[in-house]
Design a protein around this nucleic acid. Structure first.
Length: 779
DNA sequence: CAGTGAGCGAGCTTCCGCTTGACTT
């Protein structure tokens, strides 16, 4: 072996190997190979913060393989990504594999094209130790913050809790937003719209009054004042405008658009994107760069010209303005712009098409728009009615793509206005005053939280999805829906000189998949805010990033940077440990009418609980966990007392007690040692014996049917190329087994009736997918 | 996907970033 090249990602390795030819072997490090020990601080705090690194367990095997490859190679090239983490990966490789810095080549490229890679090979350099030190500072700071803060939470609030530079601020965002919502005062106001007719035109003109009213009385008064007014068109103004496309996707914007347009959570989006990347359909999916390679720009131009004509093409180069962006990769784009779609399962195809459209649109011409404003004066009022219309003169990029918005109320509909000239007198057909209410700021979705984190420079493309999973897993935050509430909306109509009032019931405030803080989340954030305000500051990360940049530029020493941070930080850790008292959010909610004992709500050993009796009294208090959706702050004494009514024996069945309770996975009925889930509509506090028996019997029938089904499996389907194919049903549904490999069966195939030919086809298709790295254009 | 079904009495827990794992009661 002449040359060994080490990159971070195996999919990348495969592509690059093709460009480099026979003399080069390309292997992957699969990200970092070394890290601090997980069990302890692993930083020598007394000795210049010397980090103690170890090869992580999951990398031991890989490192020995790399070691072997190194011993056989004449020259080693370290080609990890061109950013802080990438430089550190290269350095850890050099250290671990004992490479000679003098002969080891460090190369970088931020796009995977033949020219870029060959150019990199021509221009090797040495490892940039300043950049490595910036990464060490980042790593050490994160470890110190996480491993000194978390233990305080264990003693002051609850075991197993965690705190960190990124996660705690993410939770704070959600807690702060909830607080804003709680303090928000909804105000009602009235908007007046009017429908006019102009002489002989058929199309009505709908216009809105330039002023809003606070009260129904004012709005009604206005309507009666204009009942006999005359309405003259005083202005018809047409202005040209234009709209530009949005830049191509980064991780964050991809997550946002996939959430809005396809309804995917951020973890799902990343998983599908990973599949597309591994199949060679798209470029790398964890990126903060807006850059498109010159090759990509040309491919896009060719594609747009051939699809829509030259007029639609406009080459644009975008530059990142995100805080702390590192730009080691390209933006997320299709590898082949000519493929507007791909042959893959629906979820992958839809995400791919979204990426294709966004990328293509980013290289298209502006849309040209004509905006028209019509002003209608009222003879006896100073306010006027206004009407806005928009017409697309040239669609440009809108032909393929428009970005959707988080604001659900936004009205994007294109409105065509009737042709009307200044001076025309209009007749009023109808005017309506309609009640509106101001809306509280929206709760975060996973994707809008990522957007906010990116704005603040908190977290990285590779950590957005895991951070959200983490704060959900730790019960700091919960993802929930809210049912809409019905509200009365007043509508006052003026028609033919008469005023009528009606009230309409409207559903408002429905929310889907929004992030709410839990009691634990609120208490932890309040504690950290009080004692560690600097870490919880939204600008903390942005500020330390500046000092990391100084280290990277050789203007600061990383040990000194860490020392400046650590001394005061550690002092406040010690101080807090000694002086703050235990916080569990305890709230006295009332007395138990039976015993007269106090009832409290607080955070217990396993989460939020209610407690009857004082902890200090001789008698042991009774405990019960709060249900989903209940909170320490809002739970009432009645709700608290009813939690103690479980477990509840509802009667006997088949000589066994029928007990209703609620467990980790919601309410259930237990008969002997068998459990049966209650449905959503059953209330465990009210359910009777008959209904319980009904549930038990239904589940038994269900299980018997499944048991019957299982008897047929595993089933030999037949031989394919001399080897048997088996159909089976597992935990994850029906699957095939062939030569020791398993293949999942889709819903269109019945494992009972599937033929050998069909089964063989599925196996062949799946095998093709696994070995395929790029795909030619679809026929 | 389908299935799961507590409890504090000891010992352990925890961070952020980089990458993909994969042996179906």
């Amino acid at each position: 072996m002449k040359n060994l090249v080490i990159v971070e990602s195996p999919a990348k390795a495969k592509t690059i190997e093709k460009f480099l030819g026979k003399d080069y072997t390309v292997l992957s490090s699969y990200g970092h190979i070394r890290d601090l020990y997980a069990k302890e601080m692993s930083i020598d705090l007394e000795n210049n913060y010397e980090p103690q690194y170890t090869i992580t367990d999951d990398k031991k095997k890989l490192v020995s393989e790399l070691q072997k490859a190194v011993s056989e190679a004449e020259k080693v090239w370290l080609a990890s990504d061109e950013d802080r983490e990438g430089e550190a990966i290269a350095w850890h490789l050099q250290e671990t594999l004992k490479l000679d810095p003098k002969t080891t080549q460090r190369i970088v490229f931020n796009e995977i094209t033949k020219t870029a890679i060959l150019h990199a090979i021509e221009n090797p350099r040495q490892i940039d130790m300043d950049l490595v030190d910036a990464q060490q500072a980042r790593r050490v700071l994160d470890r110190i913050v996480g491993y000194e803060l978390s233990p305080i939470l264990w003693t002051k609030i609850k075991a197993q809790l965690s705190a960190g530079r990124v996660q705690s601020v993410a939770v704070r965002l959600i807690v702060d937003r909830e607080e804003e919502i709680k303090n928000f005062k909804t105000e009602s106001f009235f908007k007046i719209t009017a429908t006019f007719h102009a002489g002989d035109t058929q199309q009505p003109l709908i216009a809105e009054l330039s002023r809003q009213f606070k009260t129904e009385i004012e709005a009604t008064e206005f309507l009666s004042d204009i009942a006999h007014s005359t309405f003259d068109v005083t202005k018809v103004e047409t202005k040209p405008g234009h709209r530009s496309p949005t830049p191509p996707f980064t991780t964050s914007t991809l997550q946002q658009e996939a959430s809005r347009k396809l309804g995917y959570g951020v973890a799902r989006t990343m998983q599908i994107a990973q599949q597309l990347y591994e199949a060679g359909h798209i470029t790398y999916m964890r990126t903060d760069s807006l850059n498109l390679s010159e090759l990509a720009l040309k491919m896009a131009k060719d594609e747009i010209t051939s699809l829509y004509g030259e007029r639609y093409s406009k080459t644009r180069r975008y530059h990142t303005k995100t805080k702390g962006a590192q730009e080691a990769h390209e933006a997320i784009r299709p590898t082949q712009m000519a493929n507007s779609t791909i042959d893959a399962e629906p979820a992958q195809r839809r995400l791919y098409e979204l990426i294709w459209k966004r990328t293509i649109a980013s290289q298209m011409a502006d849309a040209e728009i004509e905006k028209t404003t019509i002003e209608i004066k009222i003879d006896n009022k100073k306010e006027a009615f206004l009407c806005h219309g928009e017409q697309v003169v040239f669609d440009g990029f809108l032909k393929v793509y428009f970005e959707s918005s988080d604001d659900e109320n936004e009205d994007n509909a294109e409105r065509l206005l009737p042709v009307i000239t200044e001076g025309t007198t209009l007749s009023l057909q109808e005017a309506t005053a309609r009640q509106h209410r101001t809306q509280h700021p929206p709760r975060y979705t996973e994707a809008s939280l990522v957007k906010k984190m990116e704005e603040l420079g908190i977290g990285r493309p590779s950590t957005y999805a895991p951070t959200i999973s983490n704060i959900l897993k730790r019960d700091y935050v919960i993802k929930e829906d809210r049912e809409p509430v019905q509200q009365d909306t007043a509508i006052i109509t003026l028609r033919q000189g008469n005023i009528e009032k009606s009230v309409r019931k409207e559903n408002t405030g429905a929310e889907k998949g929004k992030l709410f803080p839990t009691d634990t989340g609120k208490i932890v954030v309040a504690f950290l805010n009080e004692h560690f305000a600097n870490i919880m500051d939204y600008n903390f990360t942005a500020n330390v990033e500046k000092t990391f940049d100084d280290i990277a530029e050789g203007k600061a020493d990383w040990h000194k940077v860490i020392d400046d941070f650590y001394r005061p930080f550690h002092d406040s850790v010690t101080f807090t440990q000694q002086n703050s008292h235990r916080t569990n959010g305890e709230r006295l909610i009332g007395q138990d009418p039976n015993t007269g004992k106090n009832v409290y709500a607080k955070i217990g050993r396993f989460g939020p609980i209610v407690q009857i009796g004082d902890t200090s009294s001789d008698e042991k208090p009774r405990f019960a966990s709060l249900k989903r959706g209940q909170s320490i702050e809002t739970i009432t004494i009645d709700e608290a007392l009813s939690l103690f009514r479980l477990p509840r024996t509802v009667g006997m069945f088949e000589d066994n007690e029928v007990v209703v309770s609620t467990g980790r996975f919601g309410p259930y009925v237990r008969l002997g040692s068998k459990f049966f889930s209650l449905s959503k509509t059953d209330d465990p506090l009210e359910i009777n014996l008959d209904r319980c028996i009904e549930i038990i019997k239904a589940k038994r029938i269900d299980e018997a049917a499944k048991e019957e089904m299982r008897k047929n499996f595993p089933r030999e389907i037949g031989l394919h190329e001399g080897e048997p194919i088996q159909a089976n049903i597992g935990r994850f549904g029906p699957y095939l087994t062939y030569k020791g490999n398993n293949y999942r069966l889709s819903k269109d195939h019945d494992p009972l009736t599937i033929s050998v030919e069909e089964a063989a086809a599925i196996i062949a298709a799946s095998g093709e997918k696994k070995s395929r790295s790029t795909r030619s254009k679809k026929k």
